[in-house]
Design a protein around this nucleic acid. Structure first.
Lengths: 232, 232
DNA sequence: GACCACAGTATGGTCAGACCATATCGAACC
DNA sequence: GGTTCGATATGGTCTGACCATACTGTGGTC
């Protein structure tokens, strides 16, 4: 190396600077969902970088679910601040599952944890259960495994929503999204969904009565029924 | 551009096609951590797109923590598949907290859920607790709030690690990372850390004895001590 | 042969400039 | 007043160039 005392510790790429600037602007100016960022060309000029670097930063922000870009002109065009943590989490889980750096066992284990916790919270808070009942009706009317899973997902996400914690609800949604195919397969293998229906009714009634312990037990047994191979 | 009449509504952006192709290649070819992707220029030529589009796709993959790019030449250069779900999650949480689309209350609630669950798992599995003891010693030797929080984070992440679920451990790490400043502030406000120390010892001993219920209770009370304002 | 200096080269990082597609805005026109 | 159509601002894409970095191989030196 050189003896000049220069230790290139960590080089910052241009788009990372841009990211930091945008993030700073968000926190300092108190920008929030719905606000617009400057146009790419304008931002590039303001920061003294090329448009490519600004675009790479935008891609990152879009991936993390904090901005959404629209073409055209007018108030809705450009990069608008949004809040989609669940789509970002879904992409993250799907890719890491594909990379085999995560296993389905771990995803379902996480789901187990969240559902138990959310069921307990929803029961003690006596949360509204109308969404759960609607999802139950949807499952009864389902004509295919895909359709069944669709409403089953709604049912379980509604439990997470009822917990009142948006982060946990977002994680739950992305967990379900990333295991959709797996769930459909599990339902097909099971064939008869009457056991699952009984479980759902039991969960719903426990929540309506505000019985937290019973709700937790019901959720736990339900998952064991749905994915028997993972609860040896 | 070919004018072959191939003109359906082009709603997918080029970099999204590139992403899909790379993802397909990962799953179909069974690529895994450590494998290299083709060089940007090569990938652009193979897919018939510009290098800019390939780069935007790379930025997305990097953001999601599945690739890491190195400049230069040789076996370590180029885009290498990695597995860093926690850094991706950390960025996600930090930005959404900055956007006020998530509140610290929710982050700590999620932490509460994870720690209780992980403590129960670690206790029943009689997991190794040496990392916990080391972190405890680190806290005792800490000379500042920052240093204390550093080892405190290690302590709590070690519980999550002991659960054996990498997804939950990654979430835990990112939760702690995103609330570092908040934790330091909480420790400063508390002043005396002897209560926290007693809690930690109680957690550690419960885990060593394999007492799941006691471990859960200890974790719960510990969080109430550390963040009293959120457990009104 | 062992070692070292240096040019070669493949890689990502950055930039400038052009053009396209889209969606709104606004003025001219009926 | 409503309609039409061009102007314009926006993101999306491409091309081609140049830079910085870090390995690779060659050739010289001892």
């Amino acid at each position: 190396m050189d003896g000049t005392g220069w230790r290139p510790v960590k080089r910052t790429r241009t788009f990372e600077d841009v990211l930091a600037q945008i993030e700073r602007r968000i926190t300092e100016d108190g920008l929030t969902v719905g606000d617009r960022l400057p146009a790419e060309r304008q931002l590039a000029e303001q920061l003294g970088v090329s448009r490519s670097s600004v675009r790479e930063a935008m891609r990152v922000l879009e991936t993390l679910g904090v901005v959404s870009s629209q073409v055209g002109r007018g108030p809705d065009a450009g990069a608008v601040l949004t809040s989609r943590p669940d789509s970002a989490l879904t992409d993250l889980l799907r890719l890491h599952l594909g990379l085999a750096s995560l296993e389905m066992r771990e995803v379902i284990g996480t789901r187990h944890m969240i559902e138990q916790w959310a069921a307990a919270q929803a029961a003690t808070a006596r949360a509204d259960t109308s969404a759960l009942a609607a999802a139950l009706a949807g499952m009864d009317a389902a004509g295919s495994a895909e359709e069944f899973v669709e409403h089953d997902t709604a049912f379980h996400c509604a439990i997470a929503d009822a917990s009142g914690n948006r982060l946990i609800a977002a994680i739950m949604r992305s967990l379900r999204d990333s295991m959709r195919k797996y769930s459909v397969e599990a339902v097909r293998r099971l064939g008869d969904t009457s056991i699952l229906r009984a479980d759902h009714v039991r969960i719903l009634e426990a929540l309506e009565r505000g019985e937290a312990d019973e709700a937790v037990a019901a959720v736990s047994e339900h998952l064991a029924h749905a994915y028997p191979s993972l609860f040896t």
